[in-house]
Design a protein around this nucleic acid. Structure first.
Lengths: 243, 243
DNA sequence: AACACAGTTCTATCTAACAGAACTTTTGCG
DNA sequence: CGCAAAAGTTCTGTTAGATAGAACTGTGTT
């Protein structure tokens, strides 16, 4: 008997219990894991090894897991393929990526585009700064919505945002999610969906001084406004002039 | 009643049938799909709508699918997170990405790193050419192993490769997978795993003339050799000198 | 050689999952 | 606006599938 068990069940919340279990196997892999043994998966998921062995046959067949000769399990390539499908299904990359590259070039800091998904924000696109010291977020990472400049943007502009909201842009954070990271963010709108995401510059606190933020702010506002217009949305006129 | 049914079953091949079904729902999304209706998913998977409704509760809970207010289903952000975990679990990016960038800069063509997974090759890392005309492959894409320069490398060097194999590098293809795409590829070895992948330059046939390939060949060979050494593997001495 | 641990196989039991009918809601057309 | 078609949702009897967990096999260490 292993000690921890998945806490949600199909019986109590709908769904199919064996699917929940299978996905909990995939979900128990963490950053830094190269491979996991059967015993380690059992410890992390609370499932019996015999149950895991049966579930993993389906996961392997679908390409979500790969089993190697040393009996260890690794995440499979189908996840990367589907992750790319997800990213491209947003139909934003062709518009967002060039803007992120330009923002990164002009500001020297990492530029990201976050989307809201439920109670989280997802880093959908990212261009890392070329500087050696920078914050580390990866495309696909899921971060809390209630912390960080991008989180505040995604919360505050969920409605269209008032003139006062726009006047406050870019929204800033200092060490909210990670103690040594600063960030500045602005909203991005589209015609179809309203608020589609937050454009963000981030980096170490030491490079988020008043002077540096004053340099970044007009870059971000201009980029957010331009990207919104590309997507059929727009900022109120005053918002882009108050920078 | 819908007409098509998943062809493999847990009963005949092991695994858990409802997990197979759930993953066939995720797997029915294709490039270009923004969202799918319940009816469309039923048509693509051959599952009853009532079955899909139950399975998708588990998929939504895990973040693999998102259901929107218009009742449509979209792929969910957890796929991108897991796809990034997979990519980083290879523990290659820090070594491979800089080499791809340099190869792309020096050659002007798209540079990719392919890995073998079963009977397929996966594009694990990619740096697109900045030229307007280029081939389109995305990180995560799964391509056939028996076609393309990278496929030939992954097949031919699965054993260590003979001196004759190395002398033939880089392996070339002209319009094997896509009729207008050319590619050149070399193997990459590591100490731990032997052949870990194929380093590839690719682009339109019109830019894969004899002269252009003569320019790319030494760049690729040097990059493949250097990357192998970084990973604790190596090319035989003659291989890198015959370029 | 003995022991501990990891991985694998087997099966009795029970309930979870399904098929598909019936129902409700939404959409599109005349 | 009314109607029909299509899409989405709920319900439930039946049974086959999935599990728990014991027993067994294989591997690594002392």
């Amino acid at each position: 008997m292993t000690d921890a068990k998945p806490t949600t069940t199909a019986a109590s919340a709908g769904g199919v219990e064996s699917v929940d279990r299978a996905l909990s196997i995939v979900g128990c892999f963490q950053a830094g894991d190269h491979a996991l043994s059967l015993t380690e998966i059992a410890a992390r998921t609370g499932l019996y090894k015999s149950t895991i062995l049966r579930l993993t046959v389906s996961l392997e067949r679908a390409g979500y897991l790969v089993r190697h000769q040393d009996k260890s399990y690794r995440l499979g390539p189908e996840l990367m393929r589907l992750g790319g499908l997800y990213q491209r299904s947003l139909r934003l990359e062709d518009h967002v990526r060039p803007v992120l590259r330009q923002l990164m070039r002009e500001s020297g800091e990492s530029a990201s585009f976050f989307r809201r998904e439920g109670a989280w924000r997802i880093c959908a696109f990212r261009e890392d700064s070329t500087q050696a010291i920078r914050d580390h977020v990866h495309e696909g990472d899921r971060l809390p919505l209630d912390r960080g400049a991008a989180g505040h943007v995604l919360t505050r502009f969920a409605g269209q945002g008032s003139a006062a909201d726009f006047a406050a842009l870019p929204l800033l954070s200092f060490g909210e999610r990670e103690s040594e990271t600063g960030a500045a963010a602005v909203p991005v709108f589209s015609q179809r969906d309203g608020l589609v995401g937050a454009l963000t510059l981030s980096g170490p606190l030491t490079r988020f001084t008043g002077e540096r933020v004053a340099v970044m702010a007009p870059l971000l506002l201009a980029a957010g406004s331009r990207l919104s217009e590309t997507l059929g949305g727009h900022y109120p006129d005053q918002a882009s002039q108050s920078a």
